[in-house]
Computed example of a mutant assay.
Amino acid sequence: MNYYFSIGDIQDKINYHYNKSSEKSDFPTIIRELFIEKKYISLSENLPDISNYSFLDDNAFFDATKNLYIKLNDKLLADERLYNVIEDNHIMAVTNNFFNTKGSKHLHDCFEIDYVFRGNLNLTFLNENRTLNKGDFCILSPFTEHIASLPDKNSMVFSILVCEKTFKDNFYPLLSNNDILSHFFNNILSNPDKPNYLLFCTENNLEVSSIMKRLFVENFRYDKYNLQCCIHLLNLLFVSILRVSKTYHQFSSYKFGPDYAPILRYIQSHYKTISLPTLSEKFNYSIPYFSKIIKDSTGSTFAIIVQNLKIAEAIRLLNETTLSIEDIAYEVGYHSPDHFYRIFKKNQGLSPLQFRKKNNSL
């Protein structure tokens, strides 16, 4: 049997305990007390209509979320050890963070995406403490120990928990092979031996905020369409985040910090003419050190990255224009058409002319 507890009642009970004892409560204890007091709804048809919540302005939305109801079954109420944010046979969940709850170190066997809708979030990751601001997205890889807590009652943070397969099926295909930022993101999140995170600063992007509101509310619509809608909105969210990351410079990770964003963007924009010595000089690094940080952050060498970017642009020009092979070679940054010919054939298994003919015949 399922029971439904409102976010407002949960937060009120948390506040009651804190005001009484100055100690922070844990979530299972709060739920058990509400259950004993019978502060729940037992029939889903008695839940309030929330279909218009995501269209409210941010302040009204903040207040309205207190009337959203979290679903828990009786087995979880009987044994807190069975509690899991993602229900059995589910692939994702969207939750909010409660103020004045115990902020203990924890990890998940899934990806966690934290979004600061309002105010701030205090995040502790390994030996690093940082404050996330409104509009910040933090993607934590599986089995990454961290502590997340709200600094005040006016902050609002949504957490999306996505099983590893669902995350990879929906996020990784959006990463382009000819985009250095995609290589960076993939390298950070796909290494199971190195806990890490990606932080995106969306600068209060209204599109991202709107999708996040819809996704959060959809999580509380307990019908047969819920999961399909959540996956759809998750895809939209990923696309919006990646669009923002290509527009703004603000993204970072635990290992590499914020200083690598300008470097990766500069390579992406100047690959046709760039060289490792000029790049090293521009950013004031030695050539050996610069080679190492590029390999560490993207998983590829500088030469391979530049070559792949050139080949990807050459493929686009072969498919979409009538430029000659010689003109395309110069256009993508090769000084010798013969050199371009050899590199392209080695990379694609066909000469540029053979590649164009094959694709034009499809």
Rank of each mutant, 00 (worst) to 15 (best):
N178K: 10
P277N: 14
N235Y: 07
I267M: 07
N235D: 12
P288Y: 10
I274N: 07
I287H: 10
M156S: 09
N191Q: 11
C229N: 10
P142G: 08
F238R: 01
S210Y: 06
Y260T: 03
Q268I: 06
C163F: 11
L236W: 04
H270F: 15
Y285D: 13
Y260D: 00
E207W: 05
Y289T: 12
E218H: 06
G257F: 02
K246P: 06
L150K: 03
N205P: 08
S155N: 08
P173T: 04
S240F: 07
N205H: 13
H270L: 10
N170V: 03
I160K: 01
T247I: 15
K224H: 15
N177A: 10
P288H: 09
L279T: 07
D223V: 06
L242F: 05
T166D: 09
F238P: 00
H249R: 12
V239M: 13
K255W: 08
V217R: 00
S159Q: 14
M156W: 08
Y266H: 13
S286G: 14
L234Y: 00
D193V: 12
Q250P: 11
R214D: 05
V157H: 04
T278H: 13
L264R: 00
K168M: 05
I160Q: 07
K246A: 12
Y197N: 03
L233D: 01
P195E: 08
S182K: 04
Y172P: 00
Q268T: 12
L150V: 06
H146K: 09
